[in-house]
Simulated scan of single mutants.
Amino acid sequence: MAHLHAELVLEQQVAERTVLLSEEIQERQRIETALRQSEEQRRLTMDFTHIGSWNWNIIENTVDWNDNLRKQGHSLLSSN
């Protein structure tokens, strides 16, 4: 009897964790989709307005410039 009870408890725990994992996966997929849409909107906005941007990695001391700054021939690009 105790063995049957332990087996039922284990099955219930597995079922609960499976549901939680499924919910976490769905939430992650929603977040990733929203991030992709946001990144695409930012890219389209920057392309349309010809706004330049850059990102400085302080740890590696590197700078990444977007294509709009390159097209504008920004004076800081000569040092990179």
Rank of each mutant, 00 (worst) to 15 (best):
R30T: 03
A34R: 11
L69G: 02
I59W: 09
R70H: 10
E23G: 00
T45H: 13
I51R: 05
V63E: 06
Q12W: 02
R17Q: 14
R43G: 02
R17L: 13
Q37Y: 07
L35I: 15
L76I: 05
Q41N: 15
I25Q: 10
L77D: 00
L69T: 01
N57I: 04
T45S: 13
R42W: 12
I59V: 11
W54S: 09
V63R: 07
A6R: 15
R36L: 12
N55F: 11
S38A: 12
D67F: 07
H50R: 14
T33Q: 10
V14N: 06
E23N: 05
S78K: 13
D64V: 08
Q29R: 15
N57P: 07
N57K: 13
S79N: 10
E27H: 09
V9D: 09
N80P: 00
H74E: 01
D47N: 12
R17A: 01
H50G: 06
Q72H: 15
N66P: 02
E7W: 03
V14Y: 06
H50L: 07
R36P: 00
A6D: 14
Q37E: 14
R36N: 07
I59D: 14
T62W: 01
T45E: 11
S79A: 12
Q72T: 07
S22F: 05
V63W: 02
N68T: 04
L44E: 03
E32M: 08
L76F: 11
N80S: 09
T62V: 04
H3V: 06
L69P: 00
I51S: 08
Q29W: 04
T62D: 06
E32T: 03
V63F: 03
D67A: 11
E11M: 08
R42N: 10
N55M: 10
L69W: 04
R36Y: 05
T49F: 14
E39C: 01
H5W: 09
S38W: 00
G52K: 00
N66R: 01
L20W: 05
Q29C: 05
L69S: 01
W65I: 03
S38H: 04
R42G: 03
N61E: 14
R70S: 05
V14A: 00
R70M: 06
E27C: 03
H74A: 08
L69C: 02
M46R: 08
E60W: 05
A15D: 06
A6V: 09
H50E: 14
L69F: 09
I31M: 12
G52T: 01
A2D: 15
E16P: 01
L44R: 13
E27L: 11
K71Q: 09
M46S: 04
Q37M: 10
A15W: 07
D67N: 10
I31F: 05
L77K: 01
E60T: 12
I25V: 12
E11A: 09
H5C: 06
F48D: 14
E23W: 00
D67R: 11
R17T: 02
L76H: 11
V14P: 02
A2F: 07
S53C: 06
M1P: 05
W56E: 12
N61S: 11
F48L: 15
E23F: 03
A34G: 00
F48Y: 15
T49D: 03
W54I: 06
R36F: 07
I58E: 14
L8V: 06
R36Q: 13
D64A: 10
T49L: 15
I31P: 00
V9Y: 11
E24K: 11
I59K: 15
V63Y: 03
N66F: 02
S53E: 09
L20C: 02
L4V: 07
